[in-house]
Nucleic acid binder design. Structure first.
Lengths: 124, 124, 124, 124
DNA sequence: GTGGTCTAGACCACG
DNA sequence: GTGGTCTAGACCACT
């Protein structure tokens, strides 16, 4: 669980945690059936309130990534990997759609747009 | 000033207004030196609080698009059009960069990525 | 908003609140578009913590009954009435299924079972 | 003792065990005077904590189904079968009463209600 | 005024 | 040990 949280970010901490865990799932660090750290131990590790980690887990549970059981902690649920991948794909599409909107607004052609996309992909 | 605001959107109303005005500037509906409607008349027209329109104008002023003078209303400032274009370009780049990040995370190749960008451009 | 909450009940307070509101929706006390009391005023009225009312509203929002907007409170969303009815119907079915399970376990015939259901319906 | 416990269920494990034993009593698998497995052997068989099986036995003892004697294990007590039957009957009644409440709330007639009960009885 | 987020600290049920 | 619920009190963003 190497999660880095930023207090200055404008995405709330509980979402930063949830996304870090989702990333762990997608990148294979966490697999189906794996047990997540307890909300209390994670809270201590990240120096945040228990409520914050709990909320992160609630979000993930609401989206079907994990299952939580009283007294037994939380485990990564089946289908979580494919769920996470779908989620990221739709985010990618969302970004491209917004970018395309702007491109049309600025009279940038489809070719130029695709070209720019390609170029920015290679940058980093 | 035909601005449509959506209550169900999760971008705050004052930003929706600011962006609508910026769009008017970039698309030529508002030119340098044009006088904007007063915050009170605009508030009435959009059925929102005066505080909200005021905040929208403050944002635009802070970014250099308009100039507000005590008792004389607000006017579109010089260079506003090029400013707006630059702003939108950087937003476009930002979206593409985030999309590219996700694409690499999901092992999507540069070709596939550029291809998807092209396809989504044509959709709407 | 006449909600009666019981501290001795074993269903959590936030769920009691959520169900009372759902009942208001189903019984016509709250209609689509109606504005709910603010979480703070409701908390004061019920003598519970703000967090508790907030959680109740979060539950209702998660199930699609209401929509909450920062700074503007919460409103009953469209479809909420039919949603609520569906929800109660599935609860009714659930109870009957569990009852039927027990009836079969106790060798109670279908006729006896239906008869008992009829009789208990009339009791109150 | 063929008890199947489900980790995904939201009824606590100790209650699942208690109910499985009660079912054994009602269905004749366990008769008055029969000796139950020790809490330790049952715990090992089900791969749960000793605390859990102990709690299940405590529940059953509290309801009069079994008698536990220091160092001599637990036996099914007299009248346990009729007790269990009564218990299940009252549960059945409880479910039907709640279902009837909902039915009246939704303006479902007594006939429709009894008809639905009959239909759901036959389903499985 | 509104809701959104976060804190520290408490009690309870489950294993 | 675990999570589930609740409290009082705080700061921030939006209207």
């Amino acid at each position: 669980m190497d999660i880095i949280i930023s207090n200055s970010s404008d995405t709330p901490i509980y979402l930063q945690i949830a996304e870090a865990i989702r990333y762990s799932i997608i990148s294979g660090g966490l697999k189906e059936g794996d047990v997540l750290p307890s909300i209390r131990s994670l809270a201590k590790e990240l120096s945040v309130s228990v409520i914050t980690t709990k909320k992160a887990y609630e979000v993930l549970e609401g989206q079907g990534y994990i299952k939580t059981h009283q007294g037994r902690g939380s485990v990564v649920s089946a289908r979580s990997a494919s769920l996470a991948r779908e989620h990221r794909l739709s985010e990618l599409e969302q970004h491209l759609l917004e970018a395309a909107d702007i491109a049309r607004e600025l009279n940038i052609s489809a070719e130029e747009f695709a070209e720019t996309a390609r170029r920015l992909y290679d940058i980093e």
